[in-house]
């Protein structure tokens, strides 16, 4: 093991508990993120009117202000806003999960291959990612979402397409720095096949920054998905997507404040929580930072 190799697991775990105690921001980020996941998983149990997150409507009770019966009030067609915000957590987290999974599955192998093999493989893969990175991410997502018919699935695809190149780049950088280390050379000299070297030696030593980046990105993806839905290019009614709900509440902004406030606050809280979590994790998992302590 060299100084850049991953810390032993025990040490990492100890570092994590210590960091949680020392870093209240990381702790609160982790707590809120955990709560969001709980809310998403148990949405049908938490939401007071689960049917309102689907096709149910109740126009007679439309635009009611927050009350004990409807804690967040009701929307323009009489749906309970709390239930919709609760179910919205599911959609946002699902989009974030799918985008991250596909970005990592596409980006990391490509990046590792580029960084490890170098030469023309590196050039080809990196030029392709450069093409994707040449466009501002939100703009490319918008263009893609506009071409595809608007839906949650297509918004997920549109975001994933702009997201994976970052992981390819990140993984390439890590892999390239690991590839020249003596232990990799040793593996090569022993005749370990390249795929095995990549999986057993290069990947574990490159994955930490990817994990940190992924936790940081959850917030960004939730925001992008909300932005797409806000512009009518993502989720469609009656999907309880936060961005869509803010968009639908726009024309009631000054008269029925709760329509935009609660879904807007949900977006804010989710994005903030995952950013805090990601920042905290970076501190904990970055080996160089730990050594300095």
């Amino acid at each position: 093991m060299t100084e850049v190799a991953a810390l032993p697991l025990v040490a990492r775990r100890r570092a994590l508990t210590r960091a949680l105690r020392r870093n209240p921001l990381l702790l609160s980020g982790a707590l809120i993120a955990f709560l969001l996941v709980v809310v998403a998983v148990f949405a049908p149990l938490i939401a007071p009117h689960p049917a309102d997150a689907g096709t149910a409507t109740n126009p007679i009770e439309s635009l009611l202000p927050p009350s004990w019966h409807h804690l967040f009030g009701t929307d323009a067609v009489g749906r309970d806003l709390l239930s919709r915000v609760v179910f919205g957590a599911r959609i946002s987290l699902r989009i974030a999960g799918l985008v991250l999974a596909s970005s990592i599955l596409i980006g990391v192998p490509l990046g590792l291959a580029a960084g490890y093999f170098g030469g023309w493989i590196d050039s080809v893969i990196m030029r392709v990612t450069d093409v994707f990175l040449a466009f501002p991410a939100l703009l490319l997502s918008l263009a893609l979402a506009a071409v595809l018919t608007p839906s949650v699935g297509n918004a997920t695809i549109a975001i994933a397409v702009t997201w994976w190149p970052w992981y390819a780049r990140l993984a390439r950088g890590q892999a390239a720095s690991v590839a020249g280390r003596p232990f990799i050379e040793g593996a090569r000299a022993l005749g370990v096949p390249p795929v095995r070297t990549l999986l057993r030696h290069v990947l574990p030593n490159s994955i930490t920054p990817v994990i940190v980046q992924a936790s940081l990105d959850v917030g960004g993806i939730i925001l992008t998905a909300a932005a797409l839905s806000f512009l009518g290019l993502g989720a469609q009614d009656p999907t309880p997507e936060w961005g869509l709900m803010v968009s639908q509440g726009q024309s009631y902004f000054t008269t029925q404040w709760w329509l935009v406030t609660f879904p807007g606050a949900a977006i804010l809280v989710a994005a903030l929580a995952f950013n805090l979590l990601g920042d905290g994790l970076r501190e904990v998992l970055d080996p160089r930072r730990i050594e300095r302590r």
Partner: peptide, 18 residues
């Protein structure tokens, strides 16, 4: 990139019509 997204989305959320 992510900051850009943040700003854009935040602008969308607080889109106050002045």
């Amino acid at each position: 990139m992510h900051r850009l997204v943040l700003v854009a989305a935040a602008a969308a959320v607080v889109l106050t019509p002045f």
